[in-house]
Amino acid sequence: MPIFVTIPAVGTFVTFPIFSGPLLALALVYFLAARARTETCGDTPGLGVW
Rank of each mutant, 00 (worst) to 15 (best):
E39C: 00
R35N: 02
L23I: 05
V29M: 11
Y30M: 09
G11R: 06
I7L: 11
L23F: 03
E39T: 01
A25V: 08
L28Q: 04
S20R: 12
L32P: 01
V49C: 03
D43H: 10
P45H: 08
I18R: 03
A36F: 08
T15V: 07
T38W: 05
P2M: 13
R37W: 10
L24I: 10
V14E: 03
L28V: 07
E39A: 05
A9K: 15
C41K: 13
L28P: 01
V49H: 01
G48A: 13
A36V: 07
R35H: 05
T15I: 07
P22N: 08
A27Q: 11
F4M: 03
F19S: 06
I18S: 02
D43F: 10
P45F: 11
T40G: 06
R35E: 04
L32E: 13
G21D: 02
E39Y: 02
A36Q: 09
L28K: 09
Y30R: 11
S20V: 12
V5W: 09
F31H: 05
T40S: 13
W50S: 01
A9H: 09
I7N: 10
T6I: 15
V14I: 12
D43G: 06
T12L: 11
L32T: 11
G46I: 00
M1P: 06
A34N: 15
P17F: 15
F4Y: 06
F4T: 09
L32F: 14
V14S: 03
A33L: 14
A27Y: 13
F31A: 01
C41S: 12
V10D: 03
R35M: 03
V5M: 10
C41I: 05
L24Q: 03
T40H: 14
A34P: 00
L24C: 05
A27K: 10
L23V: 04
L23K: 06
G42F: 08
L24P: 00
C41Y: 09
F4D: 08
Y30C: 05
P22D: 04
P17N: 11
V10N: 04
G42Y: 13
T12Y: 06
V14D: 02
L32K: 14
F13W: 07
V29L: 13
F31M: 05
T40V: 09
F13T: 05
A33E: 14
P8Q: 14
G48W: 05
T40A: 11
L28I: 09
W50I: 01
D43K: 12
T44F: 13
T44R: 09
R35L: 02
G21N: 10
G42M: 07
Y30T: 10
T38F: 02
A36M: 08
D43L: 07
G21H: 09
L32N: 13
